[in-house]
Simulated scan of single mutants.
Amino acid sequence: MTSRVILISPAISAALREARFDDGSPLDDSGLRLAKAAAGTLPTAHRVCVSPTVRCRETAGALGLDALDTPELAALDPGRWRGATLTEVGAAEPEALARWLADVEAAPHGGESVHTLCERVGAWLDSLAAEPGRTIAVAEPEIVRAALVHALGAPRSSFWRTDVAPLTAVELSGRAGRWNVRMGRPL
């Protein structure tokens, strides 16, 4: 039995455009317009999931998807860095930011580590391996990165080595715990 998962990154928002840790901001006008233009381009799915963030819910809605909030797909918790830009965090806490980017187990912001995020997303992905059919998930870029790290069996330190462009699809297909990857298809 083959399971298929299409991970869709959200359309552009002010937070993504400004390299800001998510603060609940909605899609901007261009992101909403592009997501609406892509509506109807996705195949049918047995399951449709969404990260419980504003920009992912809005992207799913604009794509015409009736998606179920999926807690396992929640964005990485940046703790006290929520709403700050990388530049601001780098100026205020350069050592903490450097540690977080270099050590997947570090969580100097008081939130979630990359290691913990990868564990959570990997468990979700493994649960889908036993489910036949297709799953579509609109998920934050870090969720897509974590899924790729898991699917490829890559070291968690490679998490930061993958760029996930807005409104693109990464497709996984697998069986028996082995995943194949098709990357970066624009919608």
Rank of each mutant, 00 (worst) to 15 (best):
G40W: 03
A75Q: 15
A75M: 11
T44W: 04
R47L: 14
D69G: 00
T44D: 14
R20T: 03
G61W: 13
S9V: 11
D66Y: 04
R20I: 00
A45L: 02
D69Y: 03
V54T: 15
A75P: 12
R55A: 10
P52S: 05
D77E: 15
L68D: 04
P43W: 02
T41L: 04
D66S: 13
R17A: 14
D66E: 13
A35S: 15
S51I: 08
A62K: 07
R47H: 13
K36Q: 15
R55M: 08
T59R: 10
L63C: 09
A11N: 07
P43F: 02
L32S: 12
V50W: 06
A74L: 07
L32Q: 12
T41M: 06
S30M: 08
T53F: 03
G64S: 09
R57Y: 05
G64E: 09
G64V: 09
L73H: 02
D69H: 06
T59W: 10
A39M: 02
P10K: 06
C56D: 10
I8M: 05
P10D: 08
G61K: 14
I8P: 05
A75I: 13
L27I: 07
L32H: 12
E18K: 02
T44C: 05
L76F: 08
T59C: 09
D23F: 08
C56P: 03
K36R: 15
L42N: 00
A15T: 04
G61E: 15
R33C: 11
T70P: 02
T53A: 13
T59M: 12
G64M: 09
P52W: 01
V54L: 13
D28A: 03
P71K: 08
V54C: 11
G24E: 10
P52E: 03
V48N: 01
A45W: 00
L68H: 07
A38D: 07
A11H: 06
